[in-house]
């Protein structure tokens, strides 16, 4: 997988998966601009770790702000005069049973997870259409495919992203732009340290491969869809879940 000469934008670059995606892209030669919302220190650490030759830029920008997304794309174009790939990997959850879920919880998750994807795609599409080439990969989750307790907002938002991706795949196919999703299953994340101690044994046991996935194991599927050679897949969702759901 060779991304040299290419320019990629990644949203949620400071998340556990976003970091791995950014790292994978830099290792394979891409120039990368990633955005993040809160974690200045994590962003700086990542840039310090990887970005030694002006190939990596962090931008503090909120996917809830269309102007910020437009400006982010402009920044990538100003620096490198092209945009080949967009990967959305930002994430926020606000869990509650549906009956207790507040309107704010619904709105926040939908605004970030669904509207956020649509905003950054809108911003990125114009240069891709102009170049008659583009790759968009949206990281979703197992929730819209399999359902998840306490995460009706998250499942609805990401189900929306899958539908949006298919519709967009049809709209922009004529410009040589493909849009696909990757749906990770149960992936080990730092937050799991705070979960109930029974969670990891339970999760390990229900996955046929008998282990949680790692963020690094999700990255190859993302990069496979992002590479130039995978030009005949569009509107698809690849599930990386150790055989948990097989959906």
């Amino acid at each position: 997988m060779d991304f040299s000469d290419q320019v990629t934008i990644v949203t949620g670059g400071t998340g556990s998966l976003g970091r791995e995606i950014v790292t994978g892209l830099i290792e394979r030669g891409s120039r990368v601009l990633f955005c993040y919302r809160q974690r200045d220190e994590t962003a700086q650490e990542l840039v310090d770790l990887l970005g030694n030759d002006d190939r990596l830029v962090a931008v503090k920008a909120d996917v809830r702000d269309q102007e910020a997304m437009n400006a982010m794309v402009e920044e990538a174009l100003r620096r490198w005069e092209r945009l080949d790939t967009l990967i959305t990997a930002h994430s926020t959850v606000s869990n509650a049973p549906i009956v207790d879920m507040t309107l704010e919880q619904w709105n926040e998750v939908l605004d970030v997870m669904l509207r956020g994807v649509t905003r950054v795609c809108r911003a990125a599409l114009r240069p891709m259409q102009k170049a008659r080439y583009g790759r968009i990969v949206n990281v979703v989750g197992y929730q819209p495919l399999a359902g998840a307790l306490m995460q009706a907002n998250y499942a609805a938002a990401l189900g929306g992203v899958i539908g949006f991706s298919k519709a967009l795949a049809r709209e922009v196919a004529a410009w040589g732009i493909t849009i696909n999703c990757v749906a990770p299953g149960l992936i080990s994340r730092p937050q799991m340290a705070s979960f109930d101690p029974s969670y990891i044994p339970w999760a390990t046991n229900i996955v046929p491969l008998k282990r949680l996935g790692t963020p690094a194991e999700v990255v190859p599927a993302v990069l496979m869809l992002a590479e130039r050679e995978s030009g005949y897949m569009t509107g698809q969702t690849i599930t990386v879940d150790g055989g948990w759901r097989m959906v």
Partner: peptide, 27 residues
């Protein structure tokens, strides 16, 4: 291209899946 990916270590956590490589036909 898709076969080589699934046949590699890169796809270690992908199993039981179906990948359509169809130019967007089915989705």
């Amino acid at each position: 291209n898709a076969v080589v990916f699934l046949a590699s270590d890169a796809a270690a956590y992908i199993t039981g899946q179906t990948l359509a490589v169809d130019g967007g036909w089915t989705m």
